[in-house]
């Protein structure tokens, strides 16, 4: 039991870190709806994997990065009605995912199947924790190496480009990392709500500071907090862990908006 708990907690910490780090870029660049569609695509991919007895994680990555490659170029150009397209993709993915889940025979598999929807604290294995560790370290390293460029792009992609930064590789690098992150986070948080963990901690951090360095440090801290308390709540109250994390992170966001010094007059 205690080993399971250690795995769950370390998985939670790493999921919190990676989700909220990519989240700080996704939120600032108005890519939230794209991230939303990607996380549901990951869910559909994982469900298909379970139906076909293929690697769910691999298919989750293929699906979410597929959506990113399909819609990234559209989202790049502001003059297309991207939100409508994203809405369609989002509902398509969630229905595909549910159809796939229905095709899975009602055996012991079904709890695994449902866990990719709701998340589960029991699904963490040594391998999945290690994978998350590599991902988190990778994201931190990439942010650290290219912090300057990411900052300039987050201020204005057009002006960053105008000042001689080749912005496209960075844009797609982030979409790629987002795709991997949502796929890796499915096990713990579940496909329905992994998105909350990406957007809420980062959005909360943005309420408090005008310093991108601080925001980049604070948002994973909030993310970890959400995950740990989400796990505790789910453990104690026997709630799906995805919902607990989403509830905690929404509460934190609500509090952040109310308390935000940025929103005070004067």
């Amino acid at each position: 039991m205690s080993e399971l708990l250690i795995l769950a907690v370390s998985g939670a910490i790493l999921t919190g870190v990676s989700c909220s780090l990519v989240g700080s870029f996704v939120v600032r660049m108005n890519l939230s709806s794209l991230g939303f569609a990607m996380s549901h695509a990951a869910f559909a991919g994982a469900a298909l994997g379970l139906v076909l007895s293929l690697d769910p994680l691999g298919l989750a990555i293929v699906f979410s990065i597929g959506v990113a490659l399909l819609l990234g170029p559209l989202a790049e150009k502001a003059n297309l009605p991207t939100n409508v397209i994203l809405g369609v993709i989002f509902s398509l993915m969630i229905s595909l995912g549910l159809v796939f889940l229905n095709l899975i025979p009602q055996t012991a598999m079904s709890s695994v199947a449902l866990s990719i929807l709701w998340g589960s604290i029991l699904g963490m294995t040594v391998t999945s924790v290690l994978r998350l560790l590599v991902l988190s370290v990778g994201i931190v390293l990439i942010y650290w190496l290219f912090f300057k460029e990411f900052q300039a792009i987050m201020f204005s992609r057009k002006l960053a480009e105008a000042s001689g930064i080749n912005t496209r590789p960075f844009y797609y690098l982030i979409l790629f990392l987002t795709g991997i992150t949502v796929a890796f986070s499915l096990k713990l948080v579940g496909g329905l709500l992994v998105f909350a963990l990406m957007v809420n901690p980062a959005s909360s951090a943005y309420q408090f500071s005008y310093d991108m360095k601080k925001i980049t440090i604070v948002s994973p801290i909030i993310g970890v907090l959400c995950c740990i308390s989400g796990i505790a709540i789910s453990f104690l109250a026997d709630l799906p862990v995805g919902s607990s994390i989403a509830l905690v992170s929404s509460a934190i966001f609500g509090a952040a908006v109310v308390l935000s010094p940025k929103r005070k007059r004067g």
């Binding site: 002006l159 105008a162 943005y206």
Partner: peptide, 27 residues
Amino acid sequence: YVPQEFICDSLTPFIVEDVVMMGRYGK
């Protein structure tokens, strides 16, 4: 390049000094 109108929302997480420095990042 100085664009015609540049709008940034009030939550933009950058101070003046940062933004001016960004002009040099490419270089």
